[in-house]
Design a protein around this nucleic acid. Structure first.
Lengths: 195, 195
DNA sequence: GTCTATAATCTGATAGAC
DNA sequence: GTCTATCAGATTATAGAC
């Protein structure tokens, strides 16, 4: 056997991404070396460059995948006939999706600054696209008179910030179940934009 | 003259802190070298160690000062007789204070992970102390029946997350004045915890 | 109080063996 | 597909001159 462990191209790629996501989220992009990622996966540093062009591209791919997943998952999950139902759908979706991926969420908010101009613009565009989904729900609610937020865009950003904040304190097995947390935030979000 | 520029101990210390705050916030703690900070201030790298024990202590001092300033400023600013007035006071204070220090706010949320156990605990304690201020306002409002949030602690965390989010999109000279932003968030925060 | 010089180590990325 | 070896340069922090 010429190689120590044989070829594993199908499994090593995802493992590199998993390790990078976890390490970047925990220690910060700049604090993590390619060697640390390689050691975590169990390969040598040089092998990483078979799967990524460079370190920034590795980060970009993680953030891009996260945003793509988020938008795709929302388009499948979104439901509700009227604005109130659609708002509740968004609130429950956003909390559940983010609580399942705390590391990707953290990365998406913290490490955008490590992206070059073009890569940054791509992620920023996807984020705005997602924010617009909620903004449109609030707008429609204002149009039909069930919501009375003074500013649809600000209301959308405020609600998203409020929901995303859950990831900073939520712990599995804590005082509140995910269901209960969803209930509480649905209540607050609905009232915040109602008359 | 033995030295190039003479002694400036009273001015170099603050300048190091200013430069570190700006650079850490912009590029991330790990991405910024002591040499970059020194160059920004206009001294050599070795000279920094007259003012800080090491890089982590420099970060800790920045975060600690920020939290101390926040708590001190709130204790001076806080006003209002009833829970509604006190909530409005908190909302306007939090937005104004954070918009004046976007870099320190960003650091406080993003770079806690670069602190050791003990330093982390200190900052975390101060943050909890501040959060409790709002929690108590919500609790008092529930006790007198003017608020109906299902959970005072969650409501406080949700409102703080919502308010802090303003720093991610606010730009001087943008569509909305600070006054108007304060009005909008007062409205949403009050309604979110009301019946 | 600040400088220069240096120690010891780590960095991202590539080349070539197998 | 992975390894080893390596390049050229950066890193934190300290020592000692002035």
């Amino acid at each position: 056997m010429a190689r120590k462990t044989g070829s594993h191209s199908e499994i090593t790629g995802p493992r590199i991404r998993d390790a990078a996501l976890r390490l970047f989220a925990r220690h910060g992009f700049a604090a993590v070396s390619m060697r640390q990622i390689a050691a975590d996966v169990g390969v040598q540093a040089g092998a990483l460059y078979l799967y990524t062009r460079d370190k920034e591209t590795l980060l970009f791919d993680l953030l891009k995948s996260h945003m793509d997943d988020l938008i795709a998952a929302w388009s499948i999950h979104k439901s509700g006939e009227n604005p109130q139902e659609r708002l509740e759908s968004f609130v429950r979706f956003h909390i559940a999706f983010n609580l399942d991926r705390p590391e990707a969420v953290f990365l998406s908010y913290m490490e955008l600054r490590n992206l070059g101009r073009e890569n940054f613009a791509v992620i920023e565009g996807l984020r705005k696209q997602y924010e617009t989904e909620l903004e449109n729900i609030v707008k429609d609610g204002r149009a039909t008179g069930v919501f009375s937020a003074p500013d649809s865009k600000i209301a959308a950003l405020a609600i998203i910030a409020m929901l995303t904040g859950v990831t900073t304190w939520y712990r599995d097995g804590g005082r509140l179940s995910r269901q209960k947390i969803g209930d509480i935030y649905c209540d607050m979000a609905r009232k915040a934009v109602s008359g």
